[in-house]
Design a protein around this nucleic acid. Structure first.
Lengths: 101, 101
DNA sequence: GCCCGTTACTACAATTTCTGTAGCGATATC
DNA sequence: GATATCGCTACAGAAATTGTAGTAACGGGC
């Protein structure tokens, strides 16, 4: 098992929070929720530098959440889709949250 | 409604992903899942600088997710607890994830 | 009054991360 | 050979984060 920055405890939840708590990481997973997307497409969609997009994608690939399908582009793995399913309710909740502040 | 960095679109989900995608933001919410905690206690728990802990807490407070209860310490608001409930399954999933990589 | 501990929080230089722009090397199409 | 798309890299400047120290306010004990 690969060690992730900040996960000195070795507790999986901490490693996960650390991984997803890096800039653009959550957003990248979100952008892949519907269909595979190309590198440049992803980069344009989130508006980050190619350097950091590549770095995050590499981390997410190493974590087994994302993979590169040469024919179609970057896509979530089975594991990545499981994670996404946990996050989907966020979409609805975000609307409610926005109204209340 | 306050505008959040990177949320040029105005879509709540983007604002939320941006807010939570900043370093230590997710982790701070997580650390408040059980009980109120003092500033120094939080800071020591996550191992970040006081500067950034204070910055993130201010952002989370402005977002209505966290508040400072002078008697007990920092705690989640009602809204913050709702958000946390969406994240709780993450704990279980993280264990499974760790095993598979 | 005065020391002591605790609280949240700030100042600031050093370090790390991210951005913005340009470009590379491979592959495919004409 | 020219043109386009693909993932990806180089690199200098800008921004975020760290690490350390310290401030100001409050509440005991003495």
């Amino acid at each position: 098992m690969k060690r992730v920055r900040g996960s000195r405890s070795g507790r999986p939840i901490m490693a996960l929070l650390d991984l997803l708590g890096r800039r653009w990481a959550l957003r990248l997973v979100w952008e892949l929720r519907e269909e595979p997307r190309r590198f440049r497409d992803l980069q344009a969609a989130i508006g980050a530098s190619p350097t950091i997009v590549n770095t995050r994608l590499a981390e997410l690939r190493e974590a087994g959440l994302v993979r590169l399908d040469e024919a179609a582009g970057y896509r979530l793995t089975e594991l990545g889709e499981e994670l996404l399913r946990l996050f989907l309710p966020l979409h609805v909740w975000a609307g409610k949250w926005a109204k209340s502040i």
